[in-house]
Design a protein around this nucleic acid. Structure first.
Ligand code: FES
Ligand code: FES
Lengths: 151, 151
DNA sequence: CAGTATACGACTAATTTGGTCGGCCTTACA
DNA sequence: TGTAAGGCCGACCAAATTAGTCGTATACTG
């Protein structure tokens, strides 16, 4: 409930791993999968998807693999999740398309849509680079990426 | 993905409905279920759970039913969701108990835990009363419950 | 060409969620 | 005092989603 899918998690982990190895021109799906002990074929599919959405660049053939398409700072967690799991809405009813015709009396969705935006905002404010940074977390009064919005 | 379960949704709807009818001493699960067209038995179970966690007061017997245990302002969406779906973590690995022993190398969880807290914070800042209020939403520069935290 | 890698779709398995059923206990009130 | 409206609870089944596998085709390197 209200949690990332494993695929999205894997995706983030992989991107982070790639961000940590900027020297290497490309890392194969297997390399990354082995590093974290996640199913290679599954990760492969995930990376393929990320490639299709433009977050990664791929190279087939020997010594091929994947590399970030942009700087780690320019890739937000939001993009990754979006690419892997598709658009997400906290409310069950999509609202945008045709509303919740079944339960027209329910007005819960409106305020919840804001929660949704808030979450999206937070996710957008986190970049892959941030994930790498916080590897060694105990830094003091850090304050970048301040999120502030009214509910 | 990253969405409320229907149960939680139902629960919020029900609480909102109860909040909208403060005159009546108690509304039966069936009353509420009919009002929104949701399965009565399922709603009943949800309301029972909310009762057990102290958000509702119940009354058995004829003319019995449920009523809010506290003022609508004092019940947060967070509590409701927590009561229905159990504690939620955005990360797959619970982290608290025994960490992610399987993938000790993964440090994704740390920053994501903050996202988790942010979401929880937003949810906590929304009360059932807010849901009722925003029924007729187009009010101007409202600014209560401002959430602000660093990521 | 041989070998290593991505690309992609179909499929199955596992998990989670949604929903139902049946029996029991409590209370109002006729 | 008995009966019907209602809550309470656990077991169970069904549907949906997610996780993971397999097979095959294609691309690149040397
Ligand atoms: S769930 Fe669709 S309007 Fe409430
Ligand atoms: S998923 Fe558990 S540490 Fe990353």
């Amino acid at each position: 409930m209200l949690k990332l899918t494993k695929k999205a998690d894997y995706g983030l982990m992989a991107l982070k791993y790639l961000a940590e190895h900027p020297e290497t021109p490309a890392l194969s799906a297997k390399d990354v999968a082995d590093a974290y002990g996640i199913p290679a074929q599954l990760l492969a599919k995930i990376l393929q998807r990320l490639t299709k959405t433009g977050l990664l660049r791929s190279q087939a053939g020997i010594n091929g693999g994947y590399a970030l398409a942009r700087d780690a700072r320019q890739i937000s967690a939001y993009e990754v999740i979006l690419a892997i799991d598709g658009p997400f809405f906290i409310t069950s009813c999509t609202k945008g398309a045709h509303g919740c015709e079944l339960t027209p009396s329910c007005t819960i969705k409106e305020p919840l849509a804001r929660v949704n935006e808030t979450i999206a905002g937070v996710l957008k404010s986190i970049s892959i680079h941030d994930l790498v940074e916080q590897e060694h977390p105990p830094q003091g009064g850090d304050k970048k990426g301040l999120v502030s919005l009214t509910v």
